[in-house]
Design a binder for these strands. Structure first.
Length: 891
RNA sequence: GGGCGUUUAGCUCAGUUGGUUAGAGCGCUACCUUCACACGGUAGAAGUCACAGGUUCGAGUCCUGUAACGCCCA
């Protein structure tokens, strides 16, 4: 046991222990048939990422779980890694290159990829290092990257299997296109944003007639691609119109009027323009009426030749000019304001263009079925449970997944084409020639796969799948997946599908969905808003433990977490409190040498009521913490420990121990010291998953590392029942007595405060116990009651009747009386109270006068009257208290 | 348009299967620099549990409806 410094300096301590842990390979796990595996896979952060509060929350949760399981003796493994984040990373590298005056369009694909890999080597470990600062106990020797060799192999395997099962297919369909990233996106990657737009009413001339009809659209520029106008077949207004021909304004193209069930007669004019190349619904209408789509834009959202006079214009510029032109031609009936949800690229926020495009898709319905089953029959459960419904809703209406991306960074689609014979096939290895005609001149698909196509395999690909490895066999399936709600569809649902399809087993049994971290105004933390709090700043200022503990205290199950900097004081203050509790024990140490908390035996001691009480409360805290962790109630678990350590241990037991330590009974001192070490060493073990650094520092500082070098592998404390506790002489009745004693002491302290006694002033107390059996208990325990009450003397008498000035209070154990004779200058006190009473009386008179004044009542604003009424009430109450006080003192 | 969440002390939030006097942290008030800790201690003030109905011996909790805010999906 080395003497602890007065102030805890977390920065050095945290760095020291993390380095030691790495050195000792404390986080590493190997398959071990003798131990129960308990696995977590990290939601791999993007290599482009920097640690934000969401990561801090997410990873603290995982670390809490994994550290607890490790202490419980399980073969705990937390597999870390990063995601190659296709579009995001390509964007970052392209931006960086642009600053250097370079463009990927000036280099070959291979050259560009070399640039990205170089970037990854340089910056890709940023977030990993930040996770280490958080204290994350990941097995870093198993760190994976979604584009490393093994995982790429898994991706190829999965692609080929699905391709061969015809579950991957290429189709020409309307997809979400980002004109800035120039790639297709999946439906999930297009974020709907409420946008203030306009509804344009455009007139189309009916061929051969002088009449016009009006169509309403939010995207007028797409009319250049119109191939028809559709009306509802049930719409009587237009029943004569179907089959007629319209003249498309500007371009003069002749287009038919068709009847289609899709049209909602109540929207706009009931006539909708049909642009199959730029709208998913229009595409369907086009198919039903055999209309040929016309694409009017290029990859960058620039109008193409099909747009006639507008070719070469940006889509938004085109909209402006087209509307102007239509206005001049008298073809705009009106323009209404219109708010609607518009898709935006989730990587660059550019407005997404729905666009007809040949892309690769995964047929999802067959994959969804077993994944729905796994959740329905309870093999996988969501916490909180309500997310189950969100999952089912999505899974039951699942749409095919567009997996091809027109970028370079990612897993290249392993499909090959032979132009000689037209053969197309998927291959796990790059083939040398066409397997059908033998021609060597074959080419590979240019596109890469959606980044989620590798992450959906994460829970088993990290263990070497498709190889049947020992790791895979031992560590799969994993246990709890902790993640934020925004990637349930992107990732969680797809992992379940992949697990069921390729492993024929669930990937994890619990999905814990935590909240989003927001600022104190409820806004999502984001760089652009400038409202983000950098976890690293918090770590520097308050320590990693403080960050972790505060986050855990704040994260009510599944609710969003609102943070501001001050909230992290909570964790810091708690760590300081623990530190000082440890110092207190050291200062009062009588035992010599190291102390093994596992070897303490209370069965030979006679435990005092307070000893029994704190031991029972410890078991209660252990039970609460375990239960709450089991149910992912991290805030309740944190609170249970906080409450125990601060309010039970420090506020009561440490205060009680002072009386013992100041006394002469050496035997008793040693016993209390043993209780303290038992309780404290258990409490810091309990706290270790939440605040790993300070607890490890104290484990060593207090010399608990006798039989177990690190707290990380020290045995998890056991919650003892009263039956088990009775072996040490702990009785439930005694514990309840101490609870009641605390209530009594509080009552006595209130009396002290009421009569303005300073902490140093001793007072004479008397207690009239409510029950006979407490008389002896209190008499035996009188020393501790006296100390905690600041009593000069205490008379305990079932028949006590007060004489003179003795105010009283009622507690669970009985009535407490305090003598104020000699402590309070009665004369002066009476004078003071009378003076106050006068002031209050005057105040009341004034207000009553005011309130009975008709002029005031009729003219004064209501809130003024109300505040006067309120003040009157307060004064009346105060008068009553002062009168009572006067009565007692004068008695 | 559909779904979900939230509404409890000045602020931020807990409150599990309905059950004594609705809790915590911060802030506030008073007293205290006492030999673990002022990042502290003791005591205290502070709530029409969003609103309107209903069920019940009993509702912050369950049911119906309304409102506001937020999120997701179309």
């Amino acid at each position: 046991m080395s003497e602890l410094p007065k102030n805890y300096e977390p920065a050095g301590v945290e760095a020291k222990w993390y380095a030691t842990w790495l050195e000792e390979k404390a986080f590493n796990a190997q398959p071990d048939a003798a131990k129960e595996p308990w696995t977590i896979v990290i939601p791999p952060p993007n290599v482009t990422g920097i640690l934000h509060m969401g990561h801090a929350l997410n990873n603290t949760i995982q670390d809490v779980l994994i550290r607890q399981k490790r202490m419980q003796g399980k073969n705990a493994l937390w597999v870390p890694g990063t995601d190659h984040a296709g579009i995001a990373t390509q964007n970052v590298v392209e931006r960086k290159m642009a600053k250097e005056g370079k463009s990927r369009h000036d280099m070959s694909r291979d050259e560009f990829l070399r640039e990205v890999w170089a970037w990854k080597e340089e910056y890709g470990s940023t977030i990993v290092n930040q996770l280490k600062k958080l204290g994350s106990s990941c097995d870093w020797e198993r760190e994976r990257f979604t584009m490393d060799e093994g995982l790429s192999k898994a991706v190829l395997e999965v692609f080929c299997r699905l391709y061969d099962k015809k579950l991957i297919y290429r189709g020409n369909r309307i997809i979400n296109w980002c004109p800035r990233c120039t790639t297709a996106l999946s439906d999930e990657e297009s974020e709907h944003v409420e946008t203030e737009g306009a509804l344009y009413y455009i007139r189309y001339v009916i061929k051969g007639e002088m009449k016009k009809i009006t169509v309403a659209t939010t995207r007028p520029e797409t009319m250049l691609g119109d191939v028809a106008v559709a009306v509802s077949p049930r719409d009587k207004r237009y029943s004569g119109l179907v089959g007629k021909t319209l003249i498309l304004p500007i371009l003069g193209r002749e287009i038919p009027v068709v009847a289609d069930e899709f049209v909602d007669p109540s929207f706009g004019t009931g006539c909708v323009k049909v642009t199959p190349a730029h709208d998913p619904n229009d595409y369907e209408i086009g198919l039903r009426h055999s209309l040929t789509p016309i694409n009017v834009m290029d990859d960058h959202g620039i109008m193409n030749e099909a747009a006639g006079p507008y070719a070469g214009l940006d889509r938004f510029e085109c909209r402006k000019q087209l509307v102007e032109d239509l206005k001049h031609g008298g073809l705009i009936e009106k323009i209404d304001r219109h708010v609607h949800a518009v898709g935006h690229c989730y990587r660059c926020a550019t407005m997404v263009e729905p666009r007809l495009s040949p892309q690769w898709f995964v047929s999802m319905k067959p994959l969804a079925k077993p994944a729905i089953e796994a959740v329905r029959d309870g093999r996988i459960k969501f916490v909180p449970e309500r997310w189950t419904k969100v999952y089912f809703d999505w899974m039951e209406n699942i749409r095919d997944w567009c997996i091809s991306r027109q970028i370079w960074w990612g897993h290249r689609i392993p499909v090959f084409y032979c132009d000689a014979c037209g053969h197309e096939w998927a291959a796990r290895e790059i083939p040398g020639s066409c397997p059908v005609c033998g021609v060597q001149n074959i080419r590979q698909d240019e596109d890469v796969l959606d980044t989620w196509f590798s992450s959906w395999l994460w829970p088993f690909s990290v263990f070497g799948w498709p190889e049947k490895t020992e790791d895979l066999n031992h560590f799969y399936p994993t246990k709890t997946l902790a993640t934020a709600p925004d990637i349930i569809f992107f990732w969680v649902a797809r992992m379940i599908m992949a697990g069921m399809e390729f492993m024929e087993e669930i990937p994890f049994d619990t999905v814990y969905i935590h909240g989003t971290v927001r600022d104190d105004q409820g806004r999502k933390m984001s760089k652009s808003l400038g409202n983000s709090i950098d976890p690293l700043d918090i770590i520097e200022k308050y320590s990693s433990d403080a960050l972790r503990f505060s986050l855990m205290m704040l994260t009510a199950t599944g609710q969003d977490v609102y943070v501001n900097e001050e909230k992290f004081e909570l964790g810091r203050n708690f760590c300081t409190k623990i530190w000082n509790a440890a110092r207190f024990m050291q200062m009062n140490a009588t035992c010599e040498g190291p102390l093994d908390p596992e070897k303490i035996d209370f069965s030979t001691m006679t435990l005092s009521p307070d000893d029994q009480h704190i031991l029972a409360k410890l078991s209660e805290a252990v039970r609460n913490t375990e239960d709450n962790l089991e149910r992912c109630r991290f805030n309740d678990a944190a609170l249970a420990m906080y409450d125990f350590m601060w309010h039970h241990y420090c506020d009561w037991y440490v205060e009680y121990s002072k009386g013992v330590f100041r006394g002469e009974d050496r035997q008793r001192k040693m016993e209390v010291e043993q209780v303290m070490h038992y309780v404290f060493s258990s409490a810091i073990r309990l706290l270790h998953p939440f605040i790993p650094f300070i607890t490890e520092e104290l484990w060593h500082g207090m010399g608990y590392n006798v039989s177990c070098e690190s707290i990380q592998t020290a045995p998890w404390p056991t919650a003892l029942s009263y039956e088990e506790l009775s072996a040490w002489g702990v009785q439930r009745a005694t514990v309840e007595y101490v609870d009641a004693k605390h209530d009594l002491i509080r009552t006595g302290r209130t009396l002290r405060t009421d009569y303005n006694l300073t902490p140093k002033q001793q007072a004479k107390f008397a207690i009239r116990p409510a029950q006979e059996r407490t008389v002896k208990m209190l008499r035996d325990d009188i020393a501790s009651v006296s100390l905690l009450l600041g009593a000069e003397s205490i008379e305990i008498d079932r028949n006590f009747t007060p004489e003179g000035a003795m105010p009283s209070g009622i507690s669970q154990l009985g009535t407490v009386y305090m003598s104020i004779e000699g402590l309070v200058d009665t004369e002066a006190e009476i004078k003071k109270i009378k003076k106050q009473l006068d002031l209050v009386e005057n105040g009341i008179t004034g207000i009553v006068k005011k309130l009975s004044n008709a002029g005031f009542m009729s003219k004064a604003p209501a809130d003024v009257v109300a505040s006067e009424e309120k003040r009157k009430g307060e004064l009346l109450e105060k008068r009553e208290k002062l009168r009572k006080l006067l009565e007692t003192i004068s008695a």
